[in-house]
Design a protein around this nucleic acid. Sequence first.
DNA 1: TTATTTGTATTATATCATATATAACAAATA
DNA 2: TATTTGTTATATATGATATAATACAAATAA
Lengths: 128, 128
Amino acid sequence: MLLRVDAASTVPLYQQIHDQIILGLAGGGLRPGETLPAVRQLADELNVNMLTVAKGYNLLKAEGYLVSDRRQGTRVAADFQADAVFQQELATQLRLLIAAAKIRGIAAPELQQMITAQYQAFGGKQHA
Amino acid sequence: MLLRVDAASTVPLYQQIHDQIILGLAGGGLRPGETLPAVRQLADELNVNMLTVAKGYNLLKAEGYLVSDRRQGTRVAADFQADAVFQQELATQLRLLIAAAKIRGIAAPELQQMITAQYQAFGGKQHA
DNA sequence: TTATTTGTATTATATCATATATAACAAATA
DNA sequence: TATTTGTTATATATGATATAATACAAATAA
């Protein structure tokens, strides 16, 4: 899976790494059990510091997407469910997006169709 | 419309002000043409600095939600459409949310129902 | 006129997040 | 033994965030 970062973006580098791995998991470019690049290797590829990659990995580990040990490096977790914390986060972030869309005249069906399209773009069968 | 901020949150104060005004617009607690509190007054109510409120207002003005002049203070704009910049932002942010939901086993219909519920929670008729 | 209120601008300061650089450590492997 | 893994530690630099204290221009109200 190919990762890229934009140093000029206002989005922190570790957050960009985090987000792209989430997108990779949804799209099937990363699968449960698969090993990710070592922090030093990915840092070298992206021209960022080792600790920046580690910060992105650690965030994903705290969320349950990745696991690490000193034998096999960092791997995708076997499975991850939607716990209460995630449900709450999702609802909060979705509410703000919906509010902005609604006041700009975007109705519910239009937003729902965007969801349908995005789900199909990710593909239907991959991942845990 | 009542605003509150949480100084302990990781979300910047000016961003909290920004987000709550968006939610207020969607819910009808704020209407087109309505005057907002003066920066000094709101700063006093929230116990934050005047410039922090101004930063939140300025962000909303840059997005087209508010307008200011030195006569009548800061008011809600008459109308605001969904331009290309907004559409792009919406799609990007929605994609990340959908990716996270999908890999946690949340299917499209569940997400779409959340949208239906949130739209109804905001109410159907208000605002431009 | 004078005083007040509005958003805005300026200058200074403090703190935290972000990011880097460098080095070292423990655990496992080749 | 040497290498690779994630991890930890220390130090440093920069930008974002937030505050403080003034001041200004424009409009309004007394």
